[in-house]
């Protein structure tokens, strides 16, 4: 089967690089599946999981925002933070989730903080679900 090269790059260095059969991810406009030979495209991503299919296996990378660049033979994901499922520190993610939830419960008038807590919660939930392989 034809494959497409995928690389996930963050400011702290490349996180994932491999040849895969299909990439599926969540763009801001909705779920997106990319097969080899896709037309060049750019799309911003949501906080979510990127799934890579290679020979009946699926590998997952948790991505926090950023965007996706597609070329016919290559997919590049530029994210501000990304981790493969075995890199995630589950305990830390759980703690972050609790912290964010607590902040949301005692939310005050400050709009910015609320937004930040919400994003932090999304990131934590995303990491947890990727780490647990769902």
């Amino acid at each position: 089967m034809k494959t497409i090269k995928v690389s996930v790059v963050t400011p702290d260095g490349p996180v994932y690089e491999s040849d895969v059969e299909m990439v599926s991810t969540k763009a801001q406009t909705g779920e997106l599946g990319i097969l080899p030979g896709h037309i060049p495209m750019v799309a911003p991503l949501q906080i979510g999981a990127v799934r890579m299919k290679i020979a009946n296996k699926t590998e997952i990378v948790a991505v926090s925002g950023g965007f996706l660049e597609v070329r016919p033979d290559q997919v590049t994901i530029l994210a501000q933070a990304a981790e493969t499922s075995d890199e995630i520190n589950l305990e830390r993610a759980l703690r972050a989730k609790e912290r964010a939830e607590q902040r949301l419960r005692e939310r005050q008038q400050e709009h910015v903080d609320f937004r930040r807590a919400e994003l932090a919660l999304q990131r934590a939930i995303n990491r947890i679900s990727v780490a647990q392989g769902k």
Partner: peptide
């Protein structure tokens, strides 16, 4: 130069992309 399809459109992508670009320049 690559001519891209934009999903949803160029403006919204620039909204995400440019701050991220500027931040990474600082970094």
């Amino acid at each position: 130069l690559t001519s891209y399809e934009f999903e949803p459109n160029a403006e919204e992508i620039l909204d995400v992309l440019l701050p991220q670009y500027a931040e990474s320049l600082v970094y």
